[in-house]
Design a protein around this nucleic acid. Structure first.
Lengths: 230, 230
DNA sequence: ACAAAAGTGTTTATCATACACCCATGA
DNA sequence: TCATGGGTGTATGATAAACACTTTTGT
């Protein structure tokens, strides 16, 4: 069997962040190797023989680039024969959510540069990575209304308006503040804290809120359905 | 690079059928080769160098076993290093829906036997195939309420009660017939035909109904949401 | 005539939606 | 005192859920 006849397998990761000013942001690296050398691409790399797919993602991001994510989910497997111009490569794509505290990326051995880009202003990308990002965002958009993953994009303590803006950004539509807050608070898994945000310019200071994951797990077992149709 | 160090890639398919008497059924084959020789397993096989993943599924099922499905969707990629005891194999799992008219399976070159099993009465399975079937059913269960895929499990023309029973079987709960029918018919994509079912024993003969896929596509573009919360 | 499955409407409760004013702070 | 963003309640309409009797056929 000729080596070139072996299908190779990689993982690619779409890491999303959220900032109120920028909206949804995506981590990209600039490739150091052919093909698509110097092009922007998703972080990722070959799966080693003995490691799980998730371990490969972790290794590429956490160990090699110092990046931490606090949510990771398999997205889809891309296997079009011509997606890599040199060699048949099947890629298992994941998407992950990153809190603002972990936004500063470190260049890895496979990348000469890493940076966050606004989802709505991405550069030309290598391979089918634009398509992967699009699919990842669609998944996020669908999932945020029935699983409490939005909180993974915010700091642990956040003003309620951040949550509102996050939902409006991801769902790409306006949401009534009063109805939204009523629905979220009614679920009983978001707590208002006595603390206020550090004052920042005009406006009444907001309380901080926190998602209570333990409470969510308990309520989930008793049949709670997290469902924000907004 | 040592050959045994290459990760191999397969596809596996969970084909679901539905019969009123049996409920959901799953196609299994009995393996002709090691590992797990003579065990029941999902149909599937290695992906060839130049073919897409979907083409590999089609080849294994349609060309080699004469099986036709009328819906196919990628499910998940299973990559645990020890899932195959001999060799690292990553499998991209698909699930498909089969109409009753295509239920009779033909033994393929990789299988000495093929048969439909009730989902609730499966034999011990090779590899992690039990887990894959479970995940496929969960996907079906989730998807049937917001995409019109249930019709792919019925004959093109069906009595309405078949649809009711299908939903009750898949969702694993009772559904009020009157509310269900009202919701389905209100969508405007299921047509009542003048024909009646061939008489079969007691009871008033039912009309036949048909899902109008073209109408659904048109309505979908005008914002129709297929959503059967039942 | 009765058993068996098909067919059909109304009432009630819940929830989504729409909508506007007061509050606390910094400048 | 004004600009800015935070915080809150009510009324209405839509829809999900609960619920039972009549019709048509075969035996």
């Amino acid at each position: 069997m000729n080596f070139t006849q072996n299908i190779l397998i990689t993982v690619d990761a779409v890491l999303f962040g959220y900032q109120r000013a920028e909206g949804i942001i995506v981590l990209l690296i600039r490739r150091k190797e052919e093909p698509y050398i110097h092009h922007w691409a998703l972080p990722g790399g070959f799966v080693r023989y003995g490691e799980t797919l998730e371990a490969a993602v972790y290794r590429e991001l956490h160990e090699e680039a110092g990046l931490a994510y606090n949510y990771l989910e398999q997205l889809y497997t891309y296997g079009a024969p011509e997606r890599d111009p040199r060699q048949r490569i099947i890629s298992v794509a994941y998407y992950g959510l990153v809190r603002p505290e972990f936004f500063s990326p470190v260049a890895s051995s496979d990348a000469e540069e890493a940076a966050w880009f606004k989802l709505r202003n991405l550069p030309a990308l290598a391979f089918d990575h634009s398509q992967i990002i699009k699919a990842a965002f669609e998944r996020l958009k669908g999932k945020i209304t029935y699983e409490p993953i939005g909180f993974r994009l915010l700091d642990e303590k956040f003003p309620f308006s951040d949550l509102e803006h996050l939902y409006m950004t991801v769902l790409e539509r306006e949401i009534d503040r009063r109805n939204f807050k009523r629905k979220i608070m009614k679920l009983g898994v978001v707590e208002e804290l006595p603390e206020l945000v550090a004052s920042e310019g005009a406006g009444r200071p907001a309380h901080l809120y926190r998602f209570n994951a333990e409470k969510f797990q308990i309520l989930k077992q008793t049949g709670l359905i997290f469902d924000i149709l907004v």
